[in-house]
Structure formats: structure tokens, C-alpha cells
Design a protein around this nucleic acid. Structure first.
Length: 753
RNA sequence: GCGGGCGUGGUGGAACCGGUAGACACACAGGACUUAAAAUCCUGAGGGGGUAACCCCGUGCGGGUUCGACUCCCGCCGCCCGCACCA
């Protein structure tokens, strides 16, 4: 990731200005919870009266102007296109779908009963369940709702309730306990479809201001939260959805809301409809009703996805190229004045944003009117940097952010490999950026990454002393005593506790120093070990034994190559003896098959299987490189030498992607010019990829009882005859004819007794 | 709570689209080489029973579909991950 690179930041600032011009940037003012020590915005952390404590740090509320990228403009597109990312893991696709969180519903207005406390005459709610409107028994406003503020102005107890909510509102324990708290405002609204019915208006701690309209109608019978709330405040619970087969008279809600399918009842004109039909009908009716000069209901799609706040009050990051002028307002830095460069004489000793505190940096003249003005001191989130580097990389020297021709030629990235931790943020931001950059003409495609692969992490056991201090594997000696393992601290000899296997991290100290590994075993061994055994999407457990095993294989390849060379050196004196060529077949087949299989496995990123095939291949070769194992008549013949030579070369080429250093050395050892890396991938001889005969397992009642060897594509009757003549089969049949014989050509025979 | 995934020997893991479960490797045991050790090579091994040929059981648990199920379906149990008062 090319962060903190002036050249790159220069282009990123250009891009930001292009986005600004294209209407992709928003500037929002908001009250945020702010940690002046950590310099972070803690929108969701606990705040007590504007000043509170969070992990030892002082938290305060602040008015901040923040910069946002309008990712929500692309919510629908980003969501819909997920379906077409078919080379992405389902897990990541699901995570992105959930993150965007689309829900279809109705924005619906409830008119207030006459009162003299509110300026508005109606309140708007968002619901995905308009079908349950007849089950509504209350309205709940978010503590942060503007109407709540109006009501709190002349109601000190409500004011106190709101403060209370702010204190606990979003603290994790409150959410986990799920405790529903509310305050009855005394205000009522009219039910839109039931003449004369009114609903009380509450302020409730579980209603979020930043989703929907910040207000809901509660239908306790069919929503768990509403039910909990209704039970706590003695509100009506009116079931309006009847499960299939339930008795409308006897059906009641106890302490679990019914959210399943069914037919609408207790709902006058909606009775008997399905949920979907009822939703449609309510929408249609209320769309046509006029309230306060507009329709009472509007169909609306809501997203969980928020605009992307890119403002960071930190030093490290790309400066946002904006100047604030008292006269001209927000003025973009002219492109000719870019890049805006971070000052180097900054002071981190005191809390706060060093850019803001810097004595001179932020003071500039307005590019418009020339009067003294102030630089924006926010820097961009580093996710901005990582959202488009792949596009920049297609033309790293371009004056503009990209060279569209190059970008379009190279992109999208065919195969992206990264950790699952980027499933949402980085990968979603990059998808958004690609669309945004299409709008600004920097490239022309929607999706940046065609294929995605999420690889696992390297894990290791953890070790802890009796005092609970973490110690690193390097300081520990593990002994095995039968099936128990005892770990001791090398220095003191004291036993240490062997803890769980976790992702390597500094805090747990379960880290193995890569330099150490490379020094002891070499880079190839380390690489080989990581690729063998575990499928790449899964975590690999780093073990001493595992790396030893890998190291042994490195030695083994080297020995094999040496033996192959020795055999070849006798080529001149070799006799073209008349040999039984069939004896060479296993080696020839192994060579061709290994080439085919390993290639295929690598293509599909199944490196662990590629490794297994390579082991197989090495085993096959060694049967021909030692005189005592090799069929006698072959030894030293030209055919033998040729086959061993070809096999050794193939082996070297097959390991090359995974153990490049070893492979190059072996390549030279075998007398080849140039680099393996430059050589074409070896070709499998199709003649050796198929067999003339095949071993066919024979089952009786689904249990394997024997095996027959038959020609490939053998006649069904012949296969059946041979299968039935097997001793084991005949014994079980005991003279009786089989009920049935299933012959799956070239696969299996199953005799049903 | 919602969503997704996983469960196979002592261990990491194979098994294509329903067709020989345990490839390959690690660890282990026995043997060869060696004065000895290391390294290397050979052999063995899912569990149980049997001198043996062989038999029984076996992919988290319980059912089902099928000639045949690690694989498909239904119901549980356990673990992991993501989101989470989203109306």
C-alpha cells in the first residue's frame, strides 16, 4: 500500500478534487464523541455529560465538520453487482450484502392529536411491515429525534431521560441486555386506518436516529423489541398475522413475537390477505391519502450503509486539499498548487491533531480573494489510499491520477488475494472508488477485482508463565513425554502453560521471527511449509515439526537431482540394452501425470494438493534412481537415463513456483541454460495420462469385497461376469443369483445380494 | 437475535458431479546401515476381534432417500466467523 508517498498523495488530492466536482463528496457537521488523546472520533462510545472515560482516556463531545464520500449513492449498484462477482467467495459476498443492508418499506406519516407543544403536525416513521399496521400500539421516537428535543424543552423529566439514554444508550452491555426503556411524552397520534384510534408517543432508548427516520411505530405482536417494550409499559399486544392452521380465537402472543408467515387477521380491510398482499394494499391506500399537503405514505428503500466519513484528525494521511475562507467559504486548492504536503516539524507531545496545532502550516491565503484563510487540517482515512492503488499501479508515472487507457487495458485485477479482514471495508471501498472513478473518467469499468481469494493466517501456540506473562516460542522448549507435551522456559527451566493456538500477534508473543526461520531453514523451506498441508484459505499452524519436515524435503529434492545427474553422466557409456520398456511405464506415467495434476492444482490455488502430488512424484522417481530399487534390466540403459532425466527436470519445474531458489540451483545442476523461471511449463504426454486397464472395485451391498482389473470401457457383461466370479462375491451369494448388479462403467461394480 | 461456515485417524489434511474413506505429510513403532548417534533407506499402522484366510464397527449425534452417502434431505449437538436494538 503506497501510503505517505508524496507523488501518490498528489494524485489522490487531484482525485479528491475531481470527486468534489462530480458531486461525490459531502461535507457534514455533526456532534461527535471525541477522544482528544487518541485523536479519534468515538461516535458510539459512552459519554457522560459530554465528558467521560473510555479505557482511561478523556472523552469529550465536539462539533466537527467532516468530509464524506457519497458511497450511499451507489448502494443499489454495489449491492446488485455482488451477484455477478462469481469468482468471489460467498462469505465475502454475503458480508457485503449484509453490510449494505437493503430493506424495502414504507415511509409513513402519523398525524398528531392537537397539542400546543410541537411545531410539526405529523411524525414520519419507516417500516418494513406496513401489513402489521392494525397491530400498532405505540409510536417511539429516538432520543436524538428533533421532536424529542422540542418536547424535552418544556419537560425536564424527558430531558433527564434523554441524558440517561445518551449515557448508556449505545454501550455494549445495554445492547446485550436488550433492556427497553421508554418515556411517555403524553402526545398521541391518530391511527391512519382506524377511525378514532390513537397511539401514545414514547421516546425509547432502542430507536436509532441514523436509520430510517429515527421514529418507528411499534407492533408488539410481530416484533420482538416492540413486544419487550410493550410488556414493560403495559401496552396492547394485538396479533394481526395468523400462522397457517392456527385458531384465530385462541392465537395469542406470550413472550415471543411471531415473525413468520401467515394470513392477516384482526385487520378489517386487510383480513385474509397474505403478508405481501397486505403490504401492497396499505402502501396503495396511504399513497393516495393526502396529509399536510403530501401523500401520507411513500414507498422507500433504506440501506444500512452510511456515507463514508474519510476525515481523520491525525497527522498521518493524505491532506484534504481544501482551504476555508471566511469570505469565500470552502475553496478547493487549485490543482496547480498541489500537492498539499504535510509539514515535517510536527509535535506529537501534546494531545490533539498536530496539523491543527502547527504554528504556520494551516495559515494560507485564500486562492480566491487572497485574504488570510485556513487550511483544512483533516487528513484522509488511509482506506482512501488503498481504494485505488491498483488503478494507479497501471500507470505509476502518469501526471493524472490514472492513464485511462492503461487502466482499462490492465484492469480489472484477475485474481486478488487478501485476508478476510478486508471483506467489507477495503473491498467495498475499492468497488465504490472504481465506480466513482468511472464517473470522473479515470477508468471505465465497475468492478476492480474479478477474482477474489481470501487466504488464511499463520497461527501458533501461545505460552504463558505461571504469573500469566506471555512468552515467545523462541524462549520455550517443548518436550514430549508419551502423549503429553511439557513446555519449559529455556532460561529458567520452569514449566509454562501451553495455551490456545492463535493468530500470531505481538500481544500474545506467539510470533516466530521470519528472519530466524530464513536463517535456519532458508526462504524456500518456509514457503514450502506454508503451502503444504493446509488449504490456503485456512489458517496454518506453525509448528517446529512441520518446518523440519519441509526442510527434509528440500534436502531430498537436492539428493534426487544429484542422483539423476550421476545417472546421466553415464549416458555416454550406456548401452541401448534391449529392455522391458513396460518397466519404465510407472516413471513415465508419474512424470506426465504430475505435470498435469500439479499444474491444475496450482491454477485453482490448491497448493496443498499440488504439494501432495509433488511428494508422490518424488517418491515415484526415487524408485528409479537407486540401483537396488530399480528393475534390474533398466539400470543404466539409455531409456532409463532419458526417463530419469526428464522426470528430474519436470520435478524441478514443478517445485519452481514454490521453491524458486532451490529450483534454479537444481536447474543448473541438471545442465540447463537460463532460468527455470523463464522456461515454459513442462508438457504432459497425453499418451501417459490414460490407462489401458483399470482396477474396478467390486462391492456387495455397498461394501467393498474385492477388485477386478478390466480393460477401460470393458463390456458390461464381461465386467459383471468377472465380478460375480470373485471368491468373496461368490461366497456371500452362496449359490443364489444376485438380485441386481449395478455396473458403473470405469467406476465401480455393486452386486446386490 | 440475524446471516455464513465447519465437524474425517494421534496430528495437518485428501476423497472429482453420490461410487475403493483416510491420498500426501507430520508424529509414532520396528528393521537396515553405523563403534554409537544423527542423517538416510525399508516396513507397519483407523478401531476392535482372529494364529490365519477373514469378520465386525467406523467421517459429531439421530433419522431418511439410494444398489451405494463424508458427499443429498430432515431434526439435533458442538465449534468458528461476520453483523447486531437497522424498525
Amino acid at each position: 500500500f503506497a501510503t505517505c508517498d508524496v507523488e501518490y498523495y498528489h494524485r489522490q488530492q487531484m482525485l479528491f478534487l475531481d470527486f468534489l466536482q462530480a458531486g461525490l463528496v459531502a461535507r457534514k457537521q455533526s456532534k461527535v464523541n471525541w477522544d482528544p488523546v487518541d485523536m479519534t472520533v468515538l461516535a458510539n462510545e459512552q459519554v457522560i455529560d459530554g465528558r467521560g472515560w473510555r479505557s482511561g482516556a478523556l472523552v469529550e463531545q465536539r462539533e466537527l465538520t467532516q468530509w464524506f464520500l457519497r458511497i450511499t449513492d451507489y448502494a443499489e449498484d454495489l449491492l446488485g453487482a455482488i451477484d455477478r462477482l462469481d469468482n468471489w467467495p460467498d462469505k465475502v459476498r454475503t458480508m457485503q450484502r449484509n453490510w449494505i443492508g437493503r430493506s424495502e418499506g414504507l415511509r409513513l406519516r402519523f398525524g398528531f392529536e392537537p397539542n400546543d407543544r410541537l411545531s410539526a403536525t405529523s411524525v414520519e416513521v419507516f417500516t418494513t411491515r406496513p401489513d402489521t399496521l392494525f397491530g400498532a400500539s405505540f409510536i417511539a421516537l429516538s432520543p436524538d429525534h428533533p421532536l424529542t428535543a422540542e418536547l424535552a424543552a418544556d419537560d425536564p423529566r424527558l430531558d433527564e431521560f434523554v441524558a440517561e439514554c445518551r449515557r448508556h444508550g449505545t454501550a455494549t452491555e445495554t445492547i446485550e441486555r436488550g433492556e427497553k426503556k421508554g418515556y411517555a411524552t403524553g402526545i398521541h397520534v391518530k391511527h391512519p386506518l382506524i377511525e378514532g384510534r390513537t397511539l401514545p408517543v414514547y421516546v425509547a432508548n432502542f430507536v436509532l436516529m441514523d436509520y430510517g427516520t429515527g421514529a418507528i411505530f411499534g407492533c408488539p405482536a410481530h416484533d420482538q423489541r416492540d413486544l419487550d417494550f410493550a410488556r414493560a409499559y403495559g401496552l396492547d399486544v394485538i396479533p394481526v398475522v395468523l400462522p397457517e392452521g392456527a385458531d384465530p380465537v385462541a392465537f395469542t402472543i406470550a413472550d415471543e413475537a411471531y415473525t413468520g408467515p401467515g394470513r392477516i387477521f384482526n385487520s378489517a380491510l386487510l383480513d385474509g390477505l397474505t403478508i405481501d398482499e397486505a403490504k401492497e394494499k396499505v402502501a396503495a391506500i396511504l399513497e393516495a391519502v393526502t396529509l399536510d399537503g403530501g401523500p401520507q405514505a411513500v414507498r422507500e428503500v433504506n440501506y444500512r450503509l452510511r456515507d463514508w466519513g474519510i476525515s481523520r484528525q491525525r497527522y498521518w494521511g493524505c491532506p484534504i486539499p481544501i482551504i476555508h475562507c471566511e469570505t469565500c467559504g470552502v475553496v478547493p486548492v487549485p490543482k496547480k498548487d498541489l500537492p498539499v504536503i504535510l509539514p515535517e516539524d510536527v509535535d506529537f507531545d501534546r494531545p490533539g491533531n498536530p496539523l491543527d496545532r502547527h504554528p504556520t502550516w494551516k495559515h494560507v491565503d485564500c486562492p480566491h480573494c487572497g485574504r488570510p484563510a485556513r487550511r483544512e487540517t483533516d487528513t484522509m482515512d488511509t482506506f482512501v489510499d488503498s481504494s485505488w492503488y491498483f488503478a494507479r499501479f497501471t500507470a505509476p508515472d502518469a501526471e493524472d491520477p490514472t492513464d485511462p487507457q492503461m487502466a482499462n487495458a490492465w484492469l480489472p485485477v484477475d485474481q486478488y488475494i487478501g485476508g478476510i479482514e478486508h471483506a467489507i471495508l477495503h473491498l467495498l471501498y475499492s468497488r465504490f472508488f472504481t465506480r466513482a472513478m468511472r464517473k470522473t473518467g479515470h477508468l471505465d469499468m465497475a468492478e476492480p477485482f474479478k477474482g477474489l481469494f481470501t487466504q488464511g493466517m499463520v497461527t501458533h501456540e501461545t505460552y504463558q508463565t505461571e504469573e500469566g506473562a506471555w512468552i515467545s516460542p523462541a524462549e520455550v522448549i517443548v518436550e514430549t513425554d508419551g502423549d503429553t507435551r511439557i513446555a519449559r522456559q529455556a532460561e529458567t527451566g520452569r514449566t509454562v502453560h501451553i495455551g490456545s493456538i492463535e493468530k500470531m500477534s505481538k500481544s500474545r508473543k506467539n510470533v516466530v521471527d521470519p528472519d530466524e526461520i530464513v536463517r535456519t531453514y532458508g526462504a524456500d523451506t518456509a514457503r514450502w511449509f506454508m503451502l503444504s498441508d493446509s488449504p490456503p484459505e485456512r489458517d496454518v499452524q506453525w509448528t517446529e515439526a512441520g518446518i523440519e519436515g519441509a526442510s527434509r524435503f528440500v534436502q531430498r529434492v537436492w539428493r534426487l537431482v544429484g542422483e539423476a545427474r550421476t545417472i546421466r553422466e553415464r549416458a555416454d557409456s550406456a548401452q541401448a540394452t534391449a529392455i522391458d520398456k513396460d518397466q519404465l511405464l510407472p516413471l513415465l506415467k508419474a512424470t506426465s501425470r504430475s505435470i498435469a495434476r500439479v499444474g491444475e492444482e496450482i491454477e485453482n490455488l490448491r497448493f496443498n494438493k499440488a504439494v501432495a502430488h509433488i511428494y508422490d512424484f518424488a517418491n515415484a522417481i526415487s524408485r528409479f534412481t537407486a540401483e537396488e530399487n530399480c528393475p534390474g534390466s533398466l539400470w543404466g540403459s539409455k531409456d532409463h537415463i532419458q526417463a530419469v532425466d526428464a522426470a528430474a527436470l519436470a520435478l524441478v519445474q514443478l517445485i519452481a513456483p514454490m521453491m524458486p531458489h532451490l529450483a534454479e540451483t537444481c536447474w543448473q545442476e541438471l545442465g540447463k541454460e537460463g532460468l527455470v523461471a523463464d522456461a515454459a511449463w513442462p508438457e504432459a504426454d497425453p499418451a501417459y495420462l490414460s490407462d489401458d486397464t483399470i482396477a474396478l472395485p467390486v462391492q456387495v451391498n455397498g461394501k467393498k469385497r474385492g477388485e477386478i482389473t478390466v480393460p477401460v470401457d470393458a463390456d458390461r457383461a464381461e465386467v459383471e461376469r468377472q465380478a460375480l466370479s470373485l471368491d468373496a462375491v461368490a461366497r456371500i451369494l452362496d449359490g443364489k443369483p444376485p438380485k441386481k448388479v449395478v455396473v458403473v462403467p470405469n467406476r465401480i461394480v455393486n452386486v446386490v445380494a
